[in-house]
Simulated scan of single mutants.
Amino acid sequence: MPVGPRLSIALAVALAFGAAQARAEGPGFGLQLHANVPTGDLKTAVDNKPGAGLGAHVTFDLGAGHVIRPRFDAVFYPEGTVDGFKTKASDLSLGADYLYFPGGKPDGLYLTAGLGLHRWSVDTTISAIGSFPATSASQTSTRFGYSAGLGYTFNATLGAELRYVGSSYANQTAWDPKANAIQIGMTFRF
């Protein structure tokens, strides 16, 4: 029974897709712990104090050194004091990273780039001055962000990563402060 041209094309596409899926490994799960060194406006707001972060991710090996990694991160900066203002900041982010392993398999050195949504929460307290009482304000904002960096997997479960993370957080004025950081972390895979 002859196969029509449309059915032949559909069958070839299905076989190619199936072969690609068979080559790719199933999803891998992991955690990351990191320190964030603030830069720019964020550095000033948190009095140059580094933040601590943790997160979870899922990796999808697409084969030939290409990996997609959806991730969730939470970063908390301790209270900083600048000119009588006390500020605490936190960032919850949800995004995805593309990882490229030049060696062709998810092992050793890799480059990474990502996009995500950052949910910033900034709490500010102004100390009492003379007859003016202390006041506080909180603001939240959700902004797009990006990241780029490199990493190294030491073995099947442990890796290290260095990334530059760029975002901004809303301010009650027209000013749009930059919330950038250098992120240094360890990754753990299961």
Rank of each mutant, 00 (worst) to 15 (best):
Q21G: 04
K178T: 00
A22D: 06
I182F: 04
G103A: 15
T173C: 02
R23A: 10
N48C: 00
F76H: 10
F60L: 03
V58P: 14
Y77S: 12
Y100G: 07
T87H: 13
P38L: 14
F17Y: 11
K86G: 05
P5N: 15
K178W: 01
D107Q: 11
I182N: 02
G63N: 13
A10R: 02
F190K: 02
P106F: 13
A148L: 03
F188V: 06
G4Y: 13
G103E: 14
A96Y: 09
P133H: 04
F60H: 11
R6E: 13
W175C: 06
P5C: 15
G130L: 04
A22W: 03
V37K: 14
F72H: 11
P133C: 14
I126E: 13
S138W: 11
L92S: 08
N180Y: 02
I182C: 02
G108D: 08
G116V: 08
A89C: 04
A56V: 14
D176V: 12
D107A: 08
T124K: 09
W175H: 11
D123T: 07
G30T: 01
D91Y: 07
S141W: 03
G108S: 10
T135E: 01
G40P: 01
G63D: 10
L111F: 14
P78E: 13
P102S: 06
H66G: 04
R119P: 03
Y164P: 02
A137K: 04
E25K: 02
T187M: 08
M1W: 09
A12C: 13
T187F: 01
G65S: 00
L158D: 15
A174K: 08
K86N: 10
T173E: 12
E161A: 04
G51D: 10
A179Y: 07
Y169D: 05
G116E: 11
V67S: 09
G26D: 14
A45N: 06
R6N: 14
A52N: 02
A89M: 04
A113W: 03
G151Y: 12
A16H: 09
Y77W: 15
G185I: 01
H34N: 08
F190R: 05
V13P: 03
I182T: 07
G63T: 06
N155R: 11
F190L: 05
L109H: 01
G28K: 09
G130C: 05
S147M: 03
G103C: 04
S90R: 06
V58A: 15
L11Y: 10
G55C: 05
A181V: 00
S127V: 09
F101N: 12
A134W: 01
F190H: 05
N180K: 07
A137Q: 03
S131Q: 07
G145P: 11
G65L: 00
S141N: 09
R163A: 10
K49V: 11
G80I: 02
A35R: 15
V122I: 14
L54G: 12
F132A: 04
F29T: 06
P133G: 09
Q32K: 06
T81W: 00
S8A: 10
L99V: 04
A52W: 15
A179F: 07
L117E: 08
L15Q: 15
G55T: 13
S93Q: 07
Y152G: 12
F190I: 04
I182V: 02
G95D: 12
D47L: 13
S127K: 07
L42Y: 05
S8P: 00
P78A: 15
Q172H: 05
